[in-house]
Simulated assay, not measured.
Amino acid sequence: MKLFVKMYLNHEVNISICQHVVHEIIILLTTQNVNMLCKYFRRILMSVRCKLGDIMKQRRLSNKDVVALTGVSRNTITSLAANATKRIDYDTLEGLCRGLGVTPGDLIEYVPDDNTKTP
């Protein structure tokens, strides 16, 4: 949990991601599901992230606003904005790009892992 507080303070994640992570950790710890907890952390610490939440914050858009602009479902918007998804469909990506006037590169970011060796 200290890791996510540090990441939040360094502006690497937003508060909704931290709240979501803490909630999921509590659920997994209370059910004593260690394997699921490990899978969850691997997903959270992925090196590819969606920047929809940042775009929404900059433009002061709510989930409802983005749904209206893009035609993408509210659940998908919520998940992408919290960077809590493993994949994104091309149809979803197209709707977001068209509705928000952005490119895929504006929505998706690659963050290299410090432990990754480069050739």
Rank of each mutant, 00 (worst) to 15 (best):
K6E: 15
K86I: 11
Y40E: 10
T76V: 11
K117L: 15
N63L: 12
G71E: 06
N33L: 09
L45V: 10
L37M: 10
E24S: 03
R43Q: 08
L28G: 11
Q58D: 14
V5A: 14
Y90M: 15
G71H: 09
V34P: 01
A82Q: 11
N83Q: 04
K39C: 08
I55A: 01
G105Q: 10
N14C: 12
L28S: 00
D65S: 12
P104Q: 11
L28V: 02
E94K: 13
L93C: 08
K64F: 07
D65Y: 00
V102I: 06
Q19G: 02
V13G: 09
N83C: 11
P104R: 09
K86H: 13
G53Q: 00
D65L: 03
V111K: 05
G105F: 03
G53A: 04
T31A: 03
P112Q: 08
Y90A: 15
A82N: 14
K64H: 06
L100R: 01
L45G: 05
N115R: 15
L3W: 11
L100M: 02
K6D: 15
M7K: 15
P112K: 10
I27D: 10
L100D: 03
K117C: 14
E94G: 00
R49P: 03
L52R: 02
T103S: 07
G71C: 01
T103D: 09
R49F: 00
H23F: 04
S79E: 06
M56K: 07
N14G: 05
K86D: 15
D54F: 10
D65N: 07
L93Y: 07
P104M: 03
G95V: 01
N33P: 05
Y110Q: 05
G53Y: 06
R60E: 10
L45N: 03
K86P: 04
F4L: 14
D65A: 06
V72G: 03
R59K: 04
N63D: 12
A68K: 12
C97P: 10
K39T: 11
M46V: 13
V111H: 04
D89G: 07
T116E: 14
D114M: 11
R42D: 12
K51H: 04
V21Y: 04
H20F: 05
D113T: 05
N115W: 15
L93N: 08
I44W: 12
T85D: 00
G101P: 00
V48T: 10
G105S: 03
A68L: 10
M46Y: 09
D91R: 02
T30I: 12
L37I: 02
G99L: 01
N63W: 06
R60I: 02
S16N: 13
D91F: 04
